[in-house]
Design a protein around this nucleic acid. Structure first.
Length: 724
DNA sequence: ACTTCCCGCCAGCCT
DNA sequence: AGGCTGGCGGGAAGT
């Protein structure tokens, strides 16, 4: 097909690429403007020494005139450079005009690349197009607001469910490889016709940041922007905030491509997702991680941006949906969907859907929209950003703070702000900025990976159901906290955790400064259950020594990946730990091996959920109720051989092909040593389908809890933890 | 071999 | 008509 080839790498900075037009241009530019060149150099320097991207590769001194690697030309890096030119919160009074030509010139890239960046930034309302070749810079002033809205829209569109659905499909595929293609098709159909399958493309606008000129908006191809918004939405509605590329791509394909999508389409989407992701990464909104499942490791991204947003209330939301035949609508809302062209392919149910959404929208669009260009000054200055400001505060407050000096362990080891993490890929980090207090009652919270261990936090349950956590069985029934860490022979059995997925938890959190949980908050029933359940247990898995790294907790510096990795997390067959605490749990649950009462008490106490009885082992429990999640001493728990596995995904129970009930769960296993030779990063997400035991089902017999029950089979853990 | 994603062609819209 | 935008996918770099 054409002479489309990617020029080979290995060009020098100043060298000319004789066969591309841009290189000529570049040469001309740099020849003509030493000024620009210098600026470019500065930028390069800046970037080089920034933690973002380019981690280690080029620090060998004089590489200034060396080969430009592909990495150095990445969109993310480019975006980073771009961002460096503008303040996060621009003074509206100043000139925030962006001229694409200038930017392209100064950054020494083709305009084409700038468009990519601008599109993504525009989707977040960090810039808005003011005229041809011109944008207005808004910085992050509207970001929180935008995210809030995107989240809301995402919830309305049930993206969370769609993702689940897709994950399920993928899961099914794992059970039945032959069906792969078929499944794919079915999925699309389902999404298309499903009552929650809102296929229409839309772009969410903000007052003051609308697409101005109709000419700009009538353009049909806005997919990068729309994709970008949707991609962000996926994160915002996903719990946990991890979205794998394939799932995202599938959703995005389904949306605008109906059933005719194929492999190429998918690949193209993924390419675009990478583009978007790279910009989002440079914005520090997401980070790259990996999800590991049976079929291997796959790329994913985790949201590391703000978690809490201002109320959307009072904000005009203009989610312009594609609406067949309503020309006025398009004109008015300055956004016409790409669907126009494809309208005939649309499933009838969608038309209905679109209509209802349209109605919906009408209601929502109460605030006046400005069809007129707004001046740069108008944006952001008009409304003293009450919402945005609030959001900033919120955002800041969400970060877990190091506990007071009372704590024995270096606080830094416990809490780390993600923004300070320079490292790039592969390692999954827990989301430290998620305020524990912000977690829905009953959810299993956790602390940052730097803590080396995942500690469950039982939040006060709201109503019914029991809070639930998962315990990995400690090897010793009577751990000596002061001794060297015992080898951990583990087994997780089941977990139930409640989490109002898809429901915005906003608004019901306890203030960060106050303990999220207190003994009184815990359902007595649940506690009772916990205790009684933990009757039998123990397992003398005389095992191996703990990994020397076990003590890393003492290192204040974040070196997440290798810390605390009991290399020998081998599963111990009979050691079953049940954490079933649902009031509905039946006797069967009792039969499960549970954590010993001592441990439970200890844990609960540490969590500030109960008070009174001491750990009884001489171990001083730091009182650091800063927030429930502070969990006095993770190390202590760790030393007791307790290991927790965090489910990182809502866990709907599904039917597998064989008719067996299965849950697709995602675990994050910072404690697990990667099996040798698997090439899996130590902190991988372990994404796996898991057959549900009758118990798991039972535990959830209460009803809605069913969708939150996880049964972690030994088999899976074996896979992940077996050494050698 | 697979993942990541740069590069630039070229269609389509805008001025 | 010519410039601006941006979808798109080949294929190279990176892992």
């Amino acid at each position: 097909m054409g002479p489309l080839t990617t020029p080979k790498k290995g060009r020098e900075v100043g060298s000319v690429d004789p066969w591309t037009p841009t290189s000529n241009l570049k040469m001309l530019i740099s020849a003509a403007s030493p000024d620009i060149r210098n600026r470019e150099k500065e930028n390069t320097f800046l970037i080089r020494h920034s933690p973002f991207i380019l981690p280690q590769d080029t620090d060998n001194g004089e590489e200034s005139e060396k080969m430009i690697s592909r990495k150095e030309k990445s969109l993310g890096l480019l975006c980073h450079k771009f961002l460096a030119r503008y303040p996060d919160c621009p003074n509206p009074a100043l000139n925030n005009d962006i001229c694409l030509d200038d930017v392209a010139t100064e950054l020494n890239v083709e305009r084409r690349r700038i468009y990519d960046i601008m599109n993504v930034l525009e989707s977040l309302h960090m810039v808005s197009r003011s005229a041809k070749n011109r944008y207005t810079w808004h910085g992050r002033t509207k970001l929180a607001q935008t995210l809030a809205i995107l989240k809301q829209v995402g919830e309305e569109h049930r993206y969370g469910q769609q993702m689940q659905q897709i994950r399920q499909r993928l899961l099914d595929k794992e059970f039945d490889f032959d069906e792969e293609e078929k499944e794919n098709k079915e999925m699309v159909v389902d999404l298309e016709s499903g009552e929650q399958g809102q296929r229409e493309l839309f772009f969410v606008e903000l007052p003051g940041v609308e697409f101005k000129a109709a000419s700009v908006n009538s353009r049909k191809d806005k997919s990068l922007r729309v994709m970008s918004q949707k991609f962000v939405m996926l994160f915002l509605v996903s719990n946990p905030r991890v979205v794998s590329l394939d799932v995202a791509a599938k959703i995005l394909i389904g949306e605008d491509q109906g059933a005719d999508q194929d492999k190429n389409k998918f690949k193209t989407k993924v390419r675009r997702l990478y583009d978007i992701a790279n910009v989002l990464r440079s914005l520090k909104l997401i980070e790259k991680v990996h999800v590991t499942e049976e079929r291997g490791r796959k790329p994913a991204f985790e949201w590391v941006g703000p978690e809490e947003f201002p109320q959307v209330k009072g904000i005009t939301r203009k989610s312009v949906l594609e609406s067949r035949g309503s020309v006025d609508n398009c004109a008015k809302n300055l956004f016409s969907s790409p669907g126009a062209k494809r309208s005939f392919t649309r499933h009838p149910s969608l038309i209905k859907l679109a209509k209802s959404i349209q109605d919906d929208r009408r209601k929502i669009n109460s605030a006046p929209s400005s069809p007129v260009k707004s001046s740069p000054g108008e944006t952001g200055a008009k409304h003293p950003k009450p919402a945005a400001a609030a959001a900033e505060v919120d955002t800041a407050s969400v970060r877990l703070q190091p506990t007071s000096s009372i704590s024995k362990e270096p606080p830094q080891a416990l809490f780390l702000t993600p923004t300070h993490e320079p490292r790039a890929n592969t390692t999954v980090h827990l989301t430290p900025h998620t305020s524990l207090a912000a977690l829905p009652a009953g959810s299993v919270a956790y602390i940052p990976a730097q803590c080396s261990s995942l500690i469950p936090v039982l939040l006060p349950q709201q109503r019914g159901g029991g809070p639930y956590a998962v315990y990995l069985q400690p090897s010793s029934p009577r751990p000596n906290p002061l001794a060297r860490p015992q080898p951990t022979s583990l087994a997780v059995r089941s977990m139930t955790f409640e989490d109002k997925t898809g429901q915005s938890p906003t608004g019901q959190f306890a203030p960060k400064s106050q303990p999220a949980s207190r003994a009184s908050d815990v359902s007595p029933l649940a506690l009772k259950r916990l205790r009684s359940d933990s009757a039998s247990e123990s397992s003398p898995s005389k095992a191996k020594r703990a990994d020397p790294n076990f003590k890393v907790n003492k290192h204040p510096e974040p070196s997440p990946a290798q810390e605390i990795t009991p290399t020998s997390l081998r599963l111990h067959k009979p050691a079953a730990t049940a954490a079933a605490a649902s009031p509905h749990a039946t006797q069967q649950a009792h039969r499960l091996h549970s954590p010993s009462p001592a441990i439970l008490n200890f844990t609960l106490q540490n969590l500030g959920l109960i008070s009174g009885s001491s750990p009884g082992n001489g171990f001083a429990t730091p009182q650091t109720p800063e927030c429930a999640g502070t969990i006095a001493s993770p190390l202590a728990l760790q030393q007791r051989g307790m290991v927790f596995i965090k489910p990182v995904s809502p866990v709907p129970i599904q039917q597998s092909v064989s008719g067996q009930q299965v849950a697709l769960i995602s675990l994050q296993q910072p404690l697990m040593t990667t099996p040798k030779g698997t090439g899996l990063p130590p902190h991988s997400f372990f994404h796996t389908p898991v057959p549900l035991s009758p118990l798991a089902t039972m535990v959830t017999s209460g009803g809605h809890l069913a969708t939150k029950t996880v049964y972690i089979p030994q088999r899976k853990l074996d896979v992940a933890t077996e050494d050698s």
